[in-house]
């Protein structure tokens, strides 16, 4: 039998590595250009610094609809017809992590985020 202390050490190590990676990944700088991906394909690129007034548009797909809201310098999903609405609850896009709507296979993130990740994962 493995000692309880050994299990605790394994779990604490796993937790420490994850926590470290979280803090490191989530402190990345944000840019102005936002990419919107659906099903892994780039469907739209928006430069948030060029947005002068509030506007919104719908992204329709076979999976469902997401309403994207733009304001000067920021972007969010304001409505969606998915059941869990995690993307709506995510609020405004930050440099930390992309907004994701898994049921609709939608990802919104700052351009460069992908490049950074590629650098991380090799």
């Amino acid at each position: 039998m493995v000692k309880t202390r050994t299990w605790v050490i394994i779990i604490v190590l796993l937790l420490a590595v994850s926590l470290g990676l979280t803090l490191w990944l989530w402190s990345r700088p944000r840019g102005d250009v936002v990419n919107i991906y659906q099903d892994g394909e780039l469907v739209r690129t928006i430069d948030l610094s060029l947005v002068t007034k509030e506007e919104s548009f719908d992204l329709e797909s076979d999976y469902g609809r997401n309403t994207i809201l733009l304001e000067p310098g920021r972007i969010r999903v304001s409505d969606a017809d998915c059941p869990d609405k995690v993307c709506v609850d995510s609020g405004w896009l930050t440099g930390a992590a992309p907004i994701v709507c898994l049921p609709h296979r939608l990802v919104i993130e700052f351009a460069g985020g992908r490049g950074n990740i590629d650098a991380v994962t090799g």
Partner: peptide
């Protein structure tokens, strides 16, 4: 989703 960028969520999920 064909989106490797989702991996940023992995540490948080762990």
């Amino acid at each position: 989703t064909g989106t490797p960028a989702l991996i940023v969520y992995l540490p948080v999920l762990m």
